[in-house]
């Protein structure tokens, strides 16, 4: 049983980290605002996976499920607001390029 938990934990951590790295790559190197939102979604997904893993390993699945459902709800709200902001930026700049967001500096 111990070895099983260990293997599950390692596999889960590796997958979570891979997902998070992909998300960070997407956040850092994409120039499209929508892609940045997708990167944020991916990042949250990797964290959700980590919470599910923690709940499964410690045997507190009920707590983890509550957390994940709440997290999904909040995430949808954040992404909806973010999409609204992207639409607003697109209306002002006529473009989804993140390089257009350079007005404020100093």
């Amino acid at each position: 049983m111990m070895a099983y938990t260990q293997a599950l934990f390692s596999a889960g951590i590796i997958f979570t980290v891979l997902l998070a790295v992909a998300a960070l790559y997407c956040l850092l190197f994409s120039r499209n605002l929508i892609r940045i939102l997708i990167g944020l979604e991916l990042l949250t997904k990797s964290v959700t996976l980590l919470i599910a893993l923690a709940g499964h390993i410690t045997g507190h699945m009920a707590l983890a499920q509550t957390m994940i459902i709440t997290l999904i709800v909040i995430e949808v709200v954040v992404i909806a607001v973010a999409a609204g902001i992207v639409i607003g930026a697109q209306r002002h700049n006529q473009s989804l390029d993140v390089r257009m967001l350079r007005n404020l500096k100093g």
Partner: peptide, 12 residues
């Protein structure tokens, strides 16, 4: 996301 990851690890 960082805070949530920390929460997951602390839960572990």
């Amino acid at each position: 996301a960082l805070i949530l990851a920390a929460i997951a690890l602390l839960m572990l």
